[in-house]
Every structure is written in structure tokens, then in C-alpha cells.
Design a protein around this nucleic acid. Structure first.
Length: 511
RNA sequence: AGGAGCGUAGCUCAAUCGGUAGAGCAUCGGCCUUUUAAGCCGCAGGUUCAGGGUUCGAGUCCCUGCGCUCCUACCA
């Protein structure tokens, strides 16, 4: 086994090595070899020292990689190496030119082994840049039989459960995770450049707030209390605004004890961001700017075009201005009548077979009827290939949002909130945040009153948050973006499991 | 949670109406100094997801369980 340390210091990536190929040096070397051979043929009586010298200025490389393919021709063995920078890099190990241990190793190799090769760069007869190894040493042994070399590993279950295998067999998998990292860098760079400060707020909370979702619970021994894992960082970030931080964001791992499907994992990542003296309009500018930057990076990464980013059958345009439509307009276009026309809304819902009464027979509130129609009928009208902001949601659906003053007396008052839809997915909302402690308290209590027994076990009244608002929170804009879903869009991944290195899986062998 | 589908060698897949479980790759042995999924010769490899049932006979049909996939539902 190779000792770690100095012997690996000079290693370069396969891509860096590949780019070092020097055609002139290679040609000169080949020519001088021919010259020497010819001289030997014509004058066999000459000593080696009298023959023309071999000129060899070919760049030498020292690389490490996993052996993904090996072709043993007897006294010449071809290896294809792979690393994070390059899928295929060819090594030739010949009995004549490689040292004895290196050649012996090449004979004994298994697919999946990691080796370190050293030698000059040349081109083969078929024109492939190749390291003509003069040394080959083992770096790591692969004891597991490799997946089929052409068809690869396609079994989705095994790909998710044994991601380490998936990653070396399917380099595309690794590329998605690397793109994800670059997208996060972009996001942080843009936000930091705008004066936003990244913070970390508690994951373990005595009461999970900031969203309506079932939390996970755990127990803390030292204090003898039950805790829940956060479902959203919102209420803590707002406390920081109260404390005087003007612009904060958190890349937040959230935990929701709900279902799994192709756009939901029980733990997922969101970006939440708050800007003092901002509003939902400034949030719109920030969101659009961020997503466009991400799309530019992702399109460059894949030699694509940010105006035509593939996502399944779609081509999504991130380069043009995002579309904007109000909740009211979208509703009217899709349904043919105004959201305030509550009688027609109720008729329409009945006609479409939606629930208009709850289990115990009491009629469902008008606003929920309207929103049901909106979500089922109007949302489907949004062009999935155009990122679209839907603006001005009904205030009753947005308890943490400042209402729009000029709609306060309408049948359905509106609030300064938008939702962003891309590729048929909801990417996130933004709000002009409510900062009136009295209204906030009333809305909290209203919400709590409406919950059933089961829900009440995890819905609490956050007294301290109201207290924070009483101290005074500056008017602010708040934004939440689903990072996993954005990475799906940017990497053309159809399921959230493809953008998570280790998605939630049912344990094997458990009943 | 409901519906549909799938589960066969390490991997990718076959197996007719219910009638001896097979191939390619990988492994193992042999040959081969410009290959590209290298090629040639040979060997070996199986609790057909698990358990039960029907049958002379089950990979195949039936039931139960487990796991995965897709669709639907749920999801601020």
C-alpha cells in the first residue's frame, strides 16, 4: 500500500494531465524514434551510442484514478482511469516501457481499483491522448465486483442506497452534486455582495413554528424536555431583525414529518432571507436575480443556454424577465369570473366535485373554496417553461403577511405576497412581513382555534415571538426558496432524490 | 394512504400455454505490444425477494409479507 504524503504531492487531476499534451514534443519524439530505428536498420553494425539520440521533451504527468475499464493485450495493457475531473483518461502499461512492478500490477488489477500512474503523454495511433506509463502503483483496492461496464448501474434503489457505487459508475451523479455546491457558492456570493449576513438559528426547538407542517420530535436528556426539529427558520430570523441585523439569510435544513414523493424529502433545504425596510417587491428582484445567476452558472456548466434550460420535455427561459401575474388575474383567466364572486365560486367548486363542507357538515370558508379553485384550475394555467410570479394572495391565506391596505374592505382582502412557479413546481413564496404584534397575535390565535385535536399536539402559541414583535421589528421583506427544487431545475433532475446525495430510504430488513 | 407495475447469477437482461433456469459483461485459467464495451479458447457461477398454497410438475398461477418504481392523494 502506498504511504500517504509526499509521494502523492505531485498528483494532478486527469483533466489537468489531459490538457498538458504537447503535440510538437510528441511528434519530435516519434520522429526521433523513427530516425534511430532507420539508422539501426541501415547500419546494424553501429553501437547504440553511435545511433541518433532519442529526443523526448514530452510532458510527464502523475495521475491517480479509479480503473473503470481495462484491456489486456498481453504485453500491452490499456487502462481507462476516472476521477472527479474527467470520465475517461487512458493509460498504456507496456512490458517494455513500464517498470516491472507496474506491469505486474496492471496484470493483476481489478476494475474499481485506484492506481497512481506516471509517465510521458503521447497520442496513440487512433489519436487518443494517453499516459504511456513508466510507473504504476496501487493506491486502493476495490474488493466489490463492479457493476456491468456498459449498461452500468441502473437499479434506482441500489443507486440511492449505495451512492458511492453509483457515483463512480455514473459520473453524471457526481456532477449534479458538484453543480449543487457551485450553485450554493453563487447564491452566497450574490447575497453577501448585497450586504446579507448568513446566520445559523436553532434546529432543535421547543416549538416548531414558521410554517404549517408536522414536525419530528426528539428528547433532550439534560433538560428533560421534548424538542422538535425545525420546520422553518422564519421566526428566529425575524427575531434577528428585531435585534437590529438589517439583512439576514440562512440556508436552512428543515424537517417535516410528511410524505415522500418526487418533490418532497422529509429533510430538505430552503433559503430564507429577510431584509429590513424591504418588501415583497424587493424580494422579487432578489429572487429573480439569484435564480438568473444560478441558471447562468448551470448553463455555462453544461455548455447550454440560460434561455433554453432543459427540464424534462420543457425548455425553461431564465434569461428573459420572469412573468408576473396577479392571483386575481390568473383566477379570472382560468375560471372566467372574479375571485370576489363567491356564489359563483361555490357553484363552480360543487360542479367540479370539490369538497365544500368539512367532515362535520359545516361549510368550508369562502376563501378556502376560492383557493381550492385557484390551486386546482388556475395554477395549471401557468406556463411551466416561463418562471412566473403570482402576486397578491388573499390575506386570509397568509397570516404572517402585511395586508394590502387598499383591499381591506373588499370581499377578499389581499396581502403582499407572491409565489414563484417554475417547471410546474412551487419554488417559494415571499412576503411583506407582518410586524404588528397585535394583528399577529390575533392571527395566531385564529389559526390555533381552527385546528383539530391531532394538530393541536404540535401547534403552539409562540409567546416570545409576539414579544419580539412588541419590541419592534422594522418593516421587512421575507423570501423562501426551495433549494432542492432549484437544483432539480438547474440539473434537469426529475426527482428530488437525484439532487440529494443520500435521500431518505426505508431501511432494509425492517418490518 | 389508494391504484398499477416490478423483484431471476456480482451487474444488465432472457426463459413460448405451467414442463431440464439461460446469455452478455464481471470473476477464475490460457493466448495476444496501439486497444476503445478490445479479441480468441476454456472453467465456474442460482434459496428465481421471503413464506405459504394449487398442481404429477411453479421463475411462471393464487394468497400473505418485504422492498423499489410510477400514478393519485396528502403537503403554507
Amino acid at each position: 500500500m502506498l504511504p500517504y504524503g509526499q509521494r502523492t504531492d505531485a498528483l494532478m487531476t486527469l483533466e489537468a494531465a489531459f490538457l498538458m499534451y504537447d503535440a510538437d514534443a510528441d511528434d519530435t519524439n516519434k520522429a526521433s524514434n523513427q530516425e534511430r530505428k532507420a539508422a539501426k536498420r541501415e547500419q546494424p553494425e553501429l553501437d547504440d551510442a553511435e545511433l541518433p539520440a532519442i529526443v523526448d521533451d514530452r510532458p510527464r504527468v502523475k495521475v491517480a484514478g479509479r480503473v473503470v475499464l481495462a484491456r489486456d493485450n498481453g504485453k500491452l495493457i490499456w487502462l481507462n482511469l476516472r476521477d472527479h475531473s474527467r470520465d475517461v483518461f487512458q493509460i498504456a502499461v507496456s512490458k517494455r516501457d513500464c517498470d516491472e512492478q507496474g506491469f505486474a500490477l496492471a496484470k493483476k488489477l481489478d476494475l474499481g481499483d485506484i492506481v497512481i500512474a506516471e509517465g510521458p503523454l503521447t497520442k496513440t495511433n487512433t489519436g487518443e491522448v494517453t499516459c504511456w506509463a513508466d510507473s504504476l502503483v496501487p493506491a486502493s483496492k476495490c474488493l466489490v465486483p463492479p457493476p456491468e461496464k456498459h449498461a452500468g448501474l441502473t437499479d434506482t434503489e441500489q443507486r440511492y442506497r449505495q451512492r458511492y457505487l453509483d457515483m463512480w459508475v455514473n459520473p453524471e451523479t457526481t456532477r449534479v452534486f458538484m453543480l449543487r455546491s457551485k450553485l450554493m457558492q453563487t447564491l452566497r456570493r450574490v447575497l453577501d455582495g448585497q450586504g446579507f449576513v448568513e446566520v445559523d438559528t436553532p434546529v432543535l426547538q421547543t416549538q416548531a413554528g414558521g410554517a404549517a407542517a408536522r414536525p419530528f420530535f426528539t428528547h433532550m436528556n439534560a433538560l428533560g424536555i421534548d424538542l422538535s426539529l425545525r420546520i422553518a427558520p422564519e421566526l428566529y430570523l425575524k427575531r434577528l431583525l428585531v435585534g437590529g441585523m438589517p439583512r439576514v439569510y440562512e440556508v436552512s435544513r428543515n424537517f417535516r414529518n410528511e410524505g415522500l414523493d418526487k418533490s418532497h424529502n422529509p429533510e430538505f433545504t430552503s433559503l430564507e432571507l429577510y431584509q429590513a425596510f424591504g418588501n415583497y417587491e424587493t424580494m422579487r428582484e432578489i429572487a429573480e436575480g439569484l435564480i438568473r445567476e444560478m441558471a447562468l452558472l448551470a448553463s455555462e456548466d453544461s455548455d447550454g443556454d440560460a434561455a433554453k434550460m432543459p427540464f424534462g420535455d420543457l425548455e425553461i427561459d431564465y434569461a428573459s424577465d420572469f412573468a408576473r401575474v396577479t392571483y386575481r388575474e390568473l383566477f379570472k383567466d382560468a375560471l372566467g369570473f372574479e375571485i370576489d364572486d363567491l356564489d359563483r365560486a361555490r357553484d363552480e367548486a360543487t360542479k367540479r366535485g370539490f369538497k365544500t363542507k368539512s367532515e362535520d357538515g359545516t361549510p368550508i370558508a369562502d376563501i378556502f373554496i376560492v383557493n381550492e379553485l385557484f390551486e386546482e384550475v388556475a395554477e395549471a394555467k401557468i406556463d411551466p417553461s416561463k418562471p412566473t410570479f403570482v402576486l397578491d394572495y388573499p390575506a386570509a391565506l397568509s397570516p404572517l403577511t402585511r395586508p394590502k391596505a387598499d383591499t381591506m374592505n373588499d370581499p377578499i382582502p389581499l396581502a403582499e405576497r407572491w409565489d414563484l412557479f417554475i417547471g410546474g413546481m412551487e419554488i417559494g413564496p415571499a412576503y411583506t412581513e407582518l410586524n404588528d404584534p397585535d394583528i399577529q397575535e390575533a392571527k395566531f390565535r385564529e389559526q390555533l382555534a381552527g385546528v383539530d385535536d391531532e394538530e393541536s399536539t404540535f401547534r403552539n402559541f409562540d409567546e416570545d415571538f409576539i414579544n419580539a414583535l412588541k419590541v419592534g421589528m422594522p418593516p421587512a421583506g421575507g423570501l423562501g426558496l426551495g433549494i432542492d427544487r432549484l437544483v432539480m431545475l438547474m440539473s434537469n433532475s426529475r426527482t428530488i432524490r437525484d439532487v440529494l446525495p443520500f435521500p431518505m430510504m426505508r431501511p432494509v430488513g425492517n418490518s
